[in-house]
Nucleic acid binder design. Structure first.
Lengths: 306, 306
DNA sequence: TGACCTGCATCAGGATTGGTGATTGGCCGC
DNA sequence: GCGGCCAATCACCAATCCTGATGCAGGTCA
């Protein structure tokens, strides 16, 4: 068994095709075919079912893939360990974040990290989850913080923290700031929500539906800050994650209302490549981010929880 | 980087010599030298300090070794996983046990395991820890249950459970069966103990010394059952692990006395090769053994604890 | 102190391996 | 039924690795 064969296995599994997998790892289709065959022979088990339209992993292929990613991850860990041994952390980190976390959470992390490790180049990209996971899979991003979605082929997923959803209105619309609200017993809402591609949207829709919450109008805005700005200047309202709006507790530009019913949570998960470990710099940034995120989420749960 | 290089790295680290490592993995000294050199170049770090009397790992070598064992272990896990996928567990398991556990603990495990997996061949070896760890390192044993000792180069160590030491005498020597005893306030003892090579002996000696426990005579017997037999037929006494003597609770061939002072514990650890995972059969046997051991240890602590 | 031994590094040659590009054959959609 | 797509196979070539011999450094013993 060779490492190259494991890398090939991973590529084929993730691409579902010998040919495209071969391209991905800069090999030829014939070489790919031969190596997978050799691997199957050395393991004495068929890993993929071939068809004229590509390949699908067998049960054994699934298992082997899972292990192979772990082998490669450990393998990469060798280099990470050695790099971590250096007293001086260097290199560059690319991180992807969803808009929710870019308002409040990330700035202190970046400030602290940059002062702790001045020789690390930081790149940050703000986007929605689909784009971010594509970025991680393509290797453009080291890791990304996203809401939980499906289709994580080739990615390692770690749950980071859970946040609360908050009902947000303009100030002085008849409710006290920070007063709790039961959405099931309220006059029909004018809601600004993200579009149907957004991961939170599905959860919100399903809550609205199962609890029969009356909605007068929905406006779709895939722009967080615009949404908040609109809410502040009109009688439109929104439902937003605590991390996004906790800054309004002081500013009072908007009034925040903990939601007693229905219970709605926002999860944040970390995605990273399944078969490569984070670089030392990325790992450290990740730890800082995790720490700050749970600090903020904790505060949200305490002060904006129902 | 190649798997072969990692195997070489592991061998060199554990043997402390290119030449003997080469023999171990059926390679030549020159090939070994070249591969290690290639690995060092690909990692851009020196892994071993060469000397005319052998090699010693650098700090980087230590780290790389640790990771390499994990990589190889994961790698072996691929085959284990696939074997585990078979509905029918087969193969053979070789396990090493110290005498303490062979009196009471192992029989029910073997009985259960043999009936659950009738097609697995079981080999068991009873010996003292040094011999057992040598057996595991040589690959003769899949794993072994031993008391904690040093020198675990090349072995993965897992703590299994903790047991109590019990003071054992012949029946009717003036103490009630199961009555607790404080060894610090007792007439000078005639003790039968294992020899100085035994892992428990050092702990017992140090306890005797630090608590100034008076000892009239010590007889060294490296044979557990002979020790117990002698104790049953004379005024010699011994200190024995709960697992070993719990069978006497019913038989009353010997009287058992929980020790209130000094506090003495016996630990059991599992050792297995660091860079190969257990075979499915070995894993299952291991689980049964763990379960039974903690059942017995629990009972010892409950009924023979101080 | 000098002969000897041990252990690693190096070298050149040779065998094995793996990769390449072209070709074949099977299946699907048009 | 034809072209497109995909995997399997083959023969050839290149890279790699292994081998056995040799060199060199340090330690040991007489």
């Amino acid at each position: 068994m060779r490492l190259r064969q494991l890398r090939f296995l991973v590529a084929v599994y993730e691409e579902g095709s010998f040919t495209t997998a071969a391209h991905r790892v800069h090999a030829t289709q014939s070489g790919m075919s031969m190596q997978i065959k050799a691997l199957e022979e050395s393991l004495q088990v068929r890993l993929f079912d071939r068809s004229p339209s590509g390949v699908t992993p067998t049960r054994a292929g699934e298992l082997a893939y899972q292990r192979a990613t772990r082998v490669l991850r450990e393998l990469g860990g060798i280099k990470s360990d050695l790099a971590m041994m250096e007293d001086h952390i260097t290199g560059s980190v690319s991180v992807g974040l969803m808009p929710t976390t870019t308002r409040t959470v990330i700035a202190p992390v970046l400030a602290k990290f940059a002062s702790l490790y001045p020789d690390v180049d930081i790149k940050m990209e703000e986007a929605y989850s689909a784009q971010l996971s594509a970025g991680v899979m393509a290797g453009r991003l080291d890791f990304a913080l996203v809401p939980p979605t499906q289709s994580y082929r080739g990615l390692k997923v770690t749950h980071m923290d859970s946040d609360v959803e908050v009902f947000v209105t303009a100030p002085d619309k008849g409710r006290d700031n920070l007063s709790a609200i039961d959405l099931t017993g309220v006059e029909p809402l004018k809601l600004v929500l993200p579009g149907p591609d957004n991961a939170r949207r599905a959860k919100i829709d399903s809550s609205l539906k199962t609890f029969n919450i009356p909605v007068r109008a929905i406006m779709e805005l895939d722009a967080m800050m615009a949404t908040l700005d609109l809410v502040a200047r009109s009688d439109w309202t929104t439902i937003a994650p605590g991390c996004l709006v906790i800054a309004d507790m002081e500013s009072r530009q908007r009034f925040l209302h903990p939601i007693t019913r229905p219970a709605m949570a926002v999860d944040y998960v970390l995605i990273e490549p399944a078969s490569t470990p984070l670089s030392p710099a990325a790992q450290l940034l990740c730890e800082e981010l995790q720490a700050e995120l749970s600090r903020v989420c904790q505060r949200c749960r305490d002060e904006l929880g129902s």
